[in-house]
Amino acid sequence: MDIPFLCPMCNSASETIIHTLRDCLTIQSFQNSLNPPIQRSLFYGANLVNWLKLNCQSFKSSTGSSIEWSILFPFAL
């Protein structure tokens, strides 16, 4: 059976969990539109487990929203 392993959104990288949730350029465009209140280097640089913890435990609100990031982030995923 021939199963494609490329991301169907960008067709340029393997469809891993971290790619699907964060690293795909299409997904990054959506996430950037939410204005994460976390430093870009941390947001895009942490491993999967640390990235999830960092975002799910943030009490800051995204720019232009009164909703805490720890609530908005899981819904965005």
Rank of each mutant, 00 (worst) to 15 (best):
M1R: 11
M1V: 13
D2L: 15
D2F: 08
D2K: 12
F5Y: 11
F5E: 05
F5D: 10
F5K: 09
L6S: 13
L6M: 11
C7P: 00
C7K: 01
C7W: 01
C7F: 00
M9L: 15
C10G: 05
C10E: 04
N11C: 13
S12L: 12
S12E: 14
S12I: 05
S12A: 12
A13S: 15
S14D: 12
S14V: 12
E15F: 00
E15K: 05
E15A: 05
E15T: 04
T16F: 00
T16P: 01
I17K: 08
I18E: 14
I18M: 09
I18V: 14
I18G: 03
I18Q: 08
T20W: 00
L21R: 09
R22S: 06
R22M: 05
R22E: 08
D23S: 11
D23F: 04
C24D: 00
T26V: 14
I27R: 14
I27C: 13
Q28S: 10
Q28A: 02
Q28E: 04
Q28T: 00
S29W: 01
S29L: 13
S29G: 11
F30E: 04
N32R: 13
N32L: 14
N32W: 12
L34M: 08
L34K: 07
L34W: 03
N35S: 06
Q39H: 10
Q39T: 10
Q39N: 12
S41W: 06
S41T: 07
L42K: 13
L42Y: 11
L42W: 07
F43G: 09
G45P: 02
A46Y: 12
A46D: 13
N47I: 09
L48A: 14
L48G: 12
L48V: 07
V49A: 12
V49D: 11
V49L: 14
V49T: 08
N50R: 14
N50K: 15
W51M: 06
L52F: 05
L52C: 04
L52Y: 00
K53N: 05
K53W: 09
L54I: 09
L54C: 08
L54V: 12
N55V: 02
N55R: 05
Q57A: 04
Q57V: 05
S58I: 02
S58F: 03
K60R: 14
S61L: 02
S61C: 10
S61G: 03
S62Q: 07
T63R: 07
G64N: 07
S65Y: 10
S65W: 06
S66A: 09
I67Q: 02
I67E: 02
E68Q: 12
E68W: 05
S70R: 05
S70Y: 00
S70E: 06
S70H: 02
S70M: 12
L72Y: 01
F73I: 01
F73Q: 00
F73Y: 01
F73V: 01
P74L: 01
P74E: 00
A76I: 04
L77H: 05
L77S: 11
